[in-house]
Computed example of a mutant assay.
Amino acid sequence: MATRIKAFNSQHLTAICQVLADTNQGLSGAQIERLLHEIKVADSSPNITKWKRLFNALANAQNQHQVGNHLIMFINRAMDPVSYASDPESFTWRRNQLNIVLAFSGFHVREDGKVIYINKATTLDEARARAGKLKAALENRSVHEEVLNYCRAELLDENYFHAVFEATKGVAERIRLMSGLKSDGADLITKTFMGLHPILTLGPLNTESEKSEQRGFANLLIGLFGAVRNPLAHAPKTNWPMSEQDALDILTLVSLIHRKLDRTKKLVIEAP
């Protein structure tokens, strides 16, 4: 073992084993047996309750080697995404529940199933935040994948301020890539979507309704930058409180904008 991990205390180890061997959504007895064998930990009490069986095996390994590495090795194998190809719901449940209890020990299970270090949580609220509550809420709203692409790291820490900031910056960057322009803010939106010869259009612009939608979309983008992105760029986080509800609503709006950008067509190519 390259890095020695401090042994987990009995309370933390119990909570983790209760998640991994949960009666309804945890690992089966056969899975526990196989995984313990893979990490070369003796299955000392195979005929008792699943979570106690797992606890005894891992506790004995901790006592023998005075490290917590075996638990992390077990989780890394138990959370291998390949094993959940036909049952992604179980992966999500186990990962979320593990991250709540692991946060108190300073660990987090990533989306690829690997365990990483994080700052230790001291309250249940912090632990639940580390589990990715905001991200889960966004996924429940079926937000556009581009929203998550630009704020994945911030979502991990439940950092509403920076999550929103990165997502709104991502809108501008995507428009620059699609239009070929290098400007920003209102200037970028005006040149891309407004005027007689816009670079990107939502439709053929033959009818007044189509033209109205184009103008409205451009104004929506200008409003997003003026009301959200620009203030966040110039204000310290402490002076700009961002609630969970505000973050969800703004990021949902960003998702709508990305879906409309998916529809656009580049009709005119202009030099930057």
Rank of each mutant, 00 (worst) to 15 (best):
A136E: 12
T252C: 09
Q245Y: 00
R229C: 07
E145S: 13
V171Y: 05
K191W: 10
D22C: 02
S209M: 01
N47D: 15
T201G: 05
K120C: 00
L196H: 12
C17W: 04
M1I: 06
F225V: 09
N140A: 14
I222F: 02
P204L: 13
L124A: 06
Y150V: 06
E166C: 12
A30K: 05
L54Q: 11
G223K: 09
I269N: 11
N140Y: 14
A271G: 07
N230I: 11
D184R: 14
V41A: 08
H70Y: 12
S209W: 02
D80K: 09
S183N: 11
D184W: 15
S105P: 03
N76S: 04
N60K: 10
T123K: 12
R34N: 08
Q25A: 05
V143W: 01
K6W: 12
I48H: 01
R53V: 09
Q62T: 10
I72R: 02
L155G: 06
V171F: 00
T168V: 12
L224N: 07
A78H: 09
N99E: 06
G226Y: 01
G68N: 03
A131T: 11
H258G: 00
V101G: 09
Q11E: 15
D87T: 11
A21T: 06
W240F: 13
Y160L: 09
D22V: 05
N63M: 09
G185H: 03
E213N: 13
V254P: 04
K265I: 14
R95P: 08
P81Y: 12
S28M: 02
I257G: 05
Y150M: 02
I118P: 08
G226W: 01
K266T: 07
R229L: 08
N149Q: 13
A172F: 00
L267S: 04
I189K: 00
G132S: 06
E158W: 06
N239Y: 01
P81C: 01
A127P: 03
G226S: 15
A127I: 01
L205E: 02
I16P: 05
S86W: 10
A57D: 09
I48D: 02
T168A: 11
K114E: 09
S142L: 11
G203R: 15
L13S: 11
Y150C: 05
D157C: 02
E166P: 04
Y160T: 13
G195V: 14
L202C: 02
L202V: 05
K135L: 10
Q25Y: 11
E210V: 03
A271M: 12
A137G: 03
L134C: 10
V147G: 05
D22E: 04
I16W: 02
F217G: 15
R77M: 11
G216F: 09
I48Q: 04
A7Y: 07
L253R: 10
K40S: 13
V67I: 14
N63I: 01
A78M: 06
A172N: 03
G26N: 05
E213Q: 14
T92P: 00
P46F: 09
R229S: 00
S45Y: 13
N119S: 15
L71A: 07
L156E: 07
A163R: 02
V41F: 00
D249L: 04
V228L: 00
Q214I: 04
S45M: 08
I75T: 07
V228Q: 00
G195K: 09
S83N: 14
K266S: 04
